[in-house]
């Protein structure tokens, strides 16, 4: 047992002060392990990282490749559809299901009891979702030439920004579900919203007229329009409004969710 006493320092740390460097390290470590655990969950990583690019290759290259070659806008429409489909998933599922689960099964309680910097929990998940979105965008850019698409440098960076920042409203929607739903109901809520946002916003196909009128309630619609503006496909509405809606959804839902998380856990 002398080995044990040898490992213990003579005095316990006398300071509760956290140097900035260590504080940043706490955020970094939380984000690192949050991302790592998602990479190690094949049921999460494979569909969210692999499906967008696979579906794009299937539809835009294998099936409709010949048709799209002559219709640049159709090609860009499909590129936007599958890229944004990939950007949505990690945020809404990563927050929606994990937060509900971790609230219910004590992990969040433990983290609240431990001296974790309070924002680190959400920041880590946010960085995970953004990291996944960045990987999705990178893989989509990698296969882009197969769909006969070419972007300028400016367009390339603007699209990357739309894709990566575009993950944020979906994180907020997921978080909002995650702080209110139980771990059993969260998958249902997340799926319903996810499907509605994909199919009722005109992301994958042009909508009938009556649905077109209400498409602007979905963040996906605004993200798609921003995407179109960058690549020069005819788009609706002003960029400022699209950005304002996406920012508003993000801030409003995050605010309500964080308030509830702080007060009820």
């Amino acid at each position: 047992m002398s080995a044990i006493s040898a490992q213990l320092p003579n005095q316990l740390a006398d300071s509760a002060v956290m140097p900035t460097k260590r504080l940043l390290r706490a955020y970094f470590t939380e984000a690192k392990y949050e991302t790592l655990r998602m990479f190690r969950t094949p049921a999460f990583a494979i569909p969210f990282l692999g499906l967008p690019v696979l579906l794009y290759l299937l539809f835009a290259v294998a099936i409709f490749g010949a048709a799209i070659r002559n219709d640049l806008n159709a090609g860009l429409f499909m590129f936007a559809a599958f890229a944004l489909f990939g950007v949505m998933g990690p945020g809404i599922f990563g927050f929606g299901m994990l937060v509900a689960n971790e609230r219910e099964h004590g992990l969040l309680t433990l983290k609240r009891a431990l001296p974790m910097p309070p924002p680190a929990y959400l920041v880590a998940k946010l960085l995970m979702a953004v990291m996944f979105a960045a990987i999705v965008m990178a893989t989509m850019f990698a296969v882009m030439p197969l769909g006969h698409l070419h972007f300028s440098f400016a367009q390339f960076f603007a699209l990357a920004a739309v894709g990566i920042f575009g993950a944020l409203p979906f994180c907020a929607i997921g978080l909002f579900i995650g702080v209110r739903a139980t771990s059993r109901s969260a998958p249902a809520f997340v799926n319903i919203i996810y499907q509605l946002m994909m199919h009722a916003s005109g992301l994958f196909y042009p909508l009938p007229k009556f649905l077109r009128a209400i498409a602007p309630v979905w963040p996906t619609y605004h993200l798609q329009q921003l995407f179109f503006r960058v690549v020069g496909v005819p788009s609706q509405g002003s960029a400022i409004i699209h950005i304002a809606v996406l920012t508003g959804v993000t801030l409003l839902l995050s605010f309500f969710a964080m308030h509830r998380l702080a007060s009820k856990g």
């Binding site: 956290m18 689960n101 099964h105």
Partner: peptide, 14 residues
């Protein structure tokens, strides 16, 4: 800051 001086082991933590 206060909690940096404590360690915790809870009954239920998945």
């Amino acid at each position: 800051e206060t909690r940096r001086q404590i360690g915790v082991m809870m009954q239920e933590a998945a």
